[in-house]
């Protein structure tokens, strides 16, 4: 019932690639798995209360694995005639409207993990540092297409500052 509040009538949201789930899980696995292993070694040796640390890390890991697919599926974007809409978040939600004409530049970024999965992040930069217009997890072809479309639309609707 609540999700309707962040929906815009007449707008079809494009989802991002499910491969982002795998990438984010892998990242979380590395960041939480390593301390988990590291703290498990002394726990095995000493036992007892030392197990608390690896237990906490394991708990976070399970929570992250459960949360990540929901987060990724919550990301959506829509290209309107003049604006880009971006919807994000499960617990902390946001819905941004970024006009193409306000665009200063577009970034397409891919790290080693995302590149292996064949996805990339497209980010629109405006003159404001507050604008959060990043779409993570687009298939590379989509990312390139969106980048070109954004720069084209930005040029056509160019506004000053």
């Amino acid at each position: 019932m609540d999700s309707t509040a962040f929906d815009v009538p007449g707008v079809a949201w494009a989802p991002v690639s499910d491969k982002l789930i795998g990438v984010r899980r892998l990242t979380a696995g590395i960041w939480l798995g390593l301390p988990l292993l590291g703290s498990a070694v002394p726990a095995v040796i000493f036992g007892g209360a030392v197990w608390i640390a690896p237990a906490v890390f394991a708990l976070f890991l399970v929570w992250a694995f459960w949360l990540i697919p929901r987060q990724v599926r919550a990301i959506g974007y829509a290209e309107l005639d003049d604006d880009l809409l971006i919807r994000k978040g499960v617990m902390f939600r946001s819905l941004s409207v970024v006009p193409y004409g306000r665009m200063q530049f577009v970034d397409v970024q891919a790290g080693p993990l995302t590149r292996r999965a064949g996805i990339a992040q497209v980010q629109l930069h405006t003159a404001s540092a507050g604008s959060d217009a990043a779409i993570p997890g687009l298939p590379e072809a989509d990312a390139a297409r969106l980048r070109d479309r954004l720069s084209e639309a930005g040029e056509a609707r160019l506004a000053g500052l």
């Binding site: 509040a5 617990m91 902390f92 819905l95 941004s96 409207v97 306000r102 404001s128 540092a129 507050g130």
Partner: peptide
């Protein structure tokens, strides 16, 4: 004509009361 972009945001507590914040992004 000077807003760069805008967004609504909502945290978990706000959601329970059906509230949301409206942010307008200006230059630094």
């Amino acid at each position: 004509e000077r807003t760069q972009s805008m967004a609504i945001t909502q945290g978990p507590l706000e959601r329970r009361r059906r509230l949301a914040g409206l942010d307008f992004h200006s230059t630094a």
